[in-house]
């Protein structure tokens, strides 16, 4: 599958934080979810990818080219941050005119189509719009210059479930033709469970894993057990575990094998949130 974005060994060091050799790829036609706790390095990674902040080392290539070598690559990248970045007294109509001057590929009728579809009044000032409407406006802007890749940094945070569902539908439509891709960082892992193909987990500045979502969903499992049962689980079967008040949650890579091997124990499906919590708040074994 053709690679659209390739991130190789990017490093960035600040006082008290280090982004350490972050690598992953986004193939054409896929949605990649970027997860991790606050301060894990998700936004830093996105800012480095977009060349907003300079990396200490490593390479980032879009369609095989570095962003700094050709600013026209940005025509093909739509970006949505967690808040709208246009001044609140502008109207969607004026925003459209500004963007039409910025992007050669700007399509006014596509933009107006999205405004209609999202129910955004073209002549109301941004400050009169709700958070959800502002986010929809950001997404309309990002989609109206015919991008091949959408980069979303916490774009669905703070939206109600109905609004989020509407927006997730738009994202699914976007990747339908197998030519477009999305990279989406989000704390709302249920959104990623709905639409992502791959999940990349960043923890304390390093990529913990970058895996197919289905592999996590169908292979990974969580054994819920007490201290005595925990001692019976072979170390080589455990990825990580978390000690809770009355039980232990033990993450295993092969759910079916665990069910066969530990018949008297409860083996649950592992949601992304559970995996994240066990790794972040628990102990990693391998």
């Amino acid at each position: 599958m053709e690679t659209l974005l390739k991130v190789e060994n990017i490093c960035k060091e600040y006082d008290g934080f280090k982004l350490d050799n972050v690598s992953f790829t986004i193939p054409k036609g896929t949605i990649m979810g970027l997860v991790g706790e606050n301060g894990a390095g998700k936004s830093t990674t996105i800012n480095i990818i977009l060349d907003i902040i300079k990396k200490d080392s490593g390479t980032v290539t879009f369609w095989g080219k570095e962003l700094s070598s050709d600013k026209n690559i940005k025509e093909d990248i739509g970006v949505v941050f967690d808040e709208i970045n246009f001044h609140e007294t502008l109207t969607p109509e004026k925003v459209g005119k500004i963007c039409a001057k910025a992007y050669k590929q700007w399509n006014g009728s596509t933009y107006n189509g999205y405004l209609k579809r999202f129910g955004l009044p073209a002549d109301n000032e941004i400050k009169t719009l709700s958070k959800g409407m502002k986010m929809k406006l950001s997404i309309a802007i990002a989609l109206s210059h015919d991008p091949k890749l959408l980069i979303l940094d916490e774009a669905t945070s703070g939206l109600d479930p109905v609004m989020r569902d509407d927006i997730l539908d738009v994202f699914l439509e976007f990747v339908q033709d197998e030519e477009h891709s999305i990279m989406m960082s989000s704390h709302i892992t249920t959104d990623l469970e709905k639409i992502a193909d791959n999940i990349t987990f960043i923890h304390k500045g390093s990529v913990f894993f970058s895996k197919l979502k289905d592999e996590l969903r169908y292979s990974y499992g969580i054994i819920r057990c007490g201290e005595s049962d925990f001692k019976k689980i072979a170390k080589e079967d455990i990825l990580a575990y978390r000690r809770e008040e009355y039980q232990l949650s033990v993450l295993v890579a092969d759910k079916k094998a665990a069910k066969r091997k530990y018949r008297n124990m409860v083996v649950d499906d592992a949601a992304i949130d559970d995996i994240l919590l066990i790794y972040v708040k628990g102990e990693q074994v391998r």
Binding site: K71, K74, I77, V79, E83, N85, Y103
Partner: peptide, 18 residues
């Protein structure tokens, strides 16, 4: 001041401008 309030420069760097 308007640009700072809405973090415009951060966003502008994602557009085809230097």
């Amino acid at each position: 001041a308007f640009d700072e309030n809405c973090k415009w420069n951060h966003y502008a760097m994602t557009m085809p401008v230097s």
